[in-house]
Simulated scan of single mutants.
Amino acid sequence: MAPAMILLGEIGRPHGVRGLVRVRSFTADPLALTAYGPLYDAAGTREFRLTLLAEDLARIEGVADRDAAAKLTGTGLHVPRTALPATEGEDEFYLADLQGLEARAEDGTPLGRVRAVEDHGAGAFLVLEDERLVPFTRAAVPVVDVAGGHVVVVLPDEVEARGE
């Protein structure tokens, strides 16, 4: 089984004519984008070796012109989950670790599994198997038990309850 790949950044538009690209880093420190080793595409098949020239500007080994850089626009930059440092403490985890966990109501009623964790700028939310979106806040997700394989979800009034 291939290792889980974690998205750390994204290649943006070309910058200039010599193959430089803008990059968006999703790491706490944008300059740490390359600190975890080589970066890969989502499948882990294509390797990208970046040299960061600034917080949002990089040179990619083997990319020498604007056209080659443009073809990479939108490419996600991933590392294997095993390349990231271990989390410390019970309340610390990577959002990617939530995928696949069972979602339960406070009374233990199964709500399905967490299909994905997404963040489009206004805060993270869990996507359940039935496509319900749950804000990833302490009020809506008071319990995260990665080791136990589940999260407890308190569905906000705005999230339609299924099957009622």
Score class of each variant (00 low, 15 high):
Arg46Val: 13
Leu101Trp: 04
Arg59Val: 13
Ala35Lys: 08
Tyr36Trp: 12
Asp130Leu: 14
Gly76Arg: 05
Glu88Gly: 07
Pro14Met: 01
Val23Lys: 02
Asp41Glu: 10
Gly100Val: 00
Leu77Lys: 01
Thr34His: 06
Thr75Leu: 02
Ala42Arg: 14
Pro14Gln: 05
Thr73Pro: 01
Gly44Cys: 09
Gly44Met: 08
Gly89Met: 11
Gly44Ala: 10
Val17Thr: 14
Ala68Arg: 11
Phe93Asn: 04
Ala35Leu: 10
Ala96Phe: 12
Phe93Tyr: 13
Gly108Ala: 13
Gly16His: 10
Leu128Asn: 02
Ala68Phe: 03
Leu50Trp: 03
Phe48Trp: 07
Thr75Ile: 08
Leu111Ser: 08
Pro80Lys: 04
Gly74Ile: 09
Glu92Trp: 06
Gly100Tyr: 04
Arg59Gln: 15
Asp107Glu: 12
Ile6Pro: 04
Leu39Cys: 04
Pro85Lys: 05
Ala54Asn: 13
Ile60His: 04
Pro85Phe: 06
Leu126Met: 03
Arg66Val: 07
Arg13Gln: 14
Asp107Leu: 10
Arg132Glu: 01
Ala124Lys: 03
Lys71Asn: 13
Val114Cys: 06
Ala58Glu: 02
Arg18Phe: 15
Asp65Lys: 06
Glu131Cys: 12
Gly112Trp: 04
Gly74Pro: 07
Leu31Cys: 00
Gly108Pro: 10
Val17Ile: 12
Gly16Val: 08
Leu95Ser: 01
Leu128Ile: 13
Leu111Arg: 02
Gly121Thr: 08
Val114Lys: 00
Leu8Tyr: 03
Ala124Ser: 09
Leu128Pro: 01
Glu92Lys: 03
Asp130Gly: 10
Tyr36Ser: 03
Arg115Tyr: 00
Ala116Lys: 10
Arg24Gln: 00
Glu55Pro: 03
Gly123Tyr: 03
Gly112His: 09
Arg104Glu: 08
Gln99Ile: 15
Ile60Trp: 02
Ala96Ile: 02
Leu101Tyr: 01
Gly19Glu: 01
Val117Ile: 13
Arg22Ala: 12
Leu133Cys: 06
Glu88Ala: 13
Leu8Pro: 00
Val63Thr: 01
Thr51Gly: 13
Glu118Cys: 07
Asp65Tyr: 12
Thr87Met: 06
Ala83Gln: 04
Leu20Thr: 05
Leu50Glu: 04
Tyr40Ala: 03
Met5Ser: 05
Glu92Val: 11
His120Leu: 15
Tyr40Asp: 04
Gly100Gln: 00
His15Trp: 15
Arg13Val: 11
Asp56Gly: 09
Ala105His: 14
Ala122Asp: 11
Glu55Trp: 14
Met5Ile: 09
Gly112Arg: 09
Arg115Gln: 14
Val117Lys: 02
His78Gly: 04
Thr34Ile: 11
Leu126Glu: 02
Gly12Leu: 04
Leu128Ser: 05
Thr34Asp: 06
Arg13Ser: 13
Gly112Asn: 12
Glu47Met: 09
Pro14Glu: 05
Leu101Cys: 01
Gly123Asp: 08
Gly89Arg: 10
Asp56Ile: 05
Thr109Met: 07
Leu7Cys: 11
Gly44Pro: 05
His15Val: 15
Leu77Gly: 00
Thr73Leu: 10
Ala70Lys: 09
Pro110Arg: 12
Arg104Cys: 11
Asp107Gly: 12
Ala68Pro: 04
Pro85Trp: 07
Ala105Met: 09
Asp29Thr: 06
Thr87Leu: 00
Leu126Pro: 05
Val114Asp: 00
Val114Ser: 01
Ala43Tyr: 14
Glu90Tyr: 11
Gly108Arg: 12
Phe125Met: 07
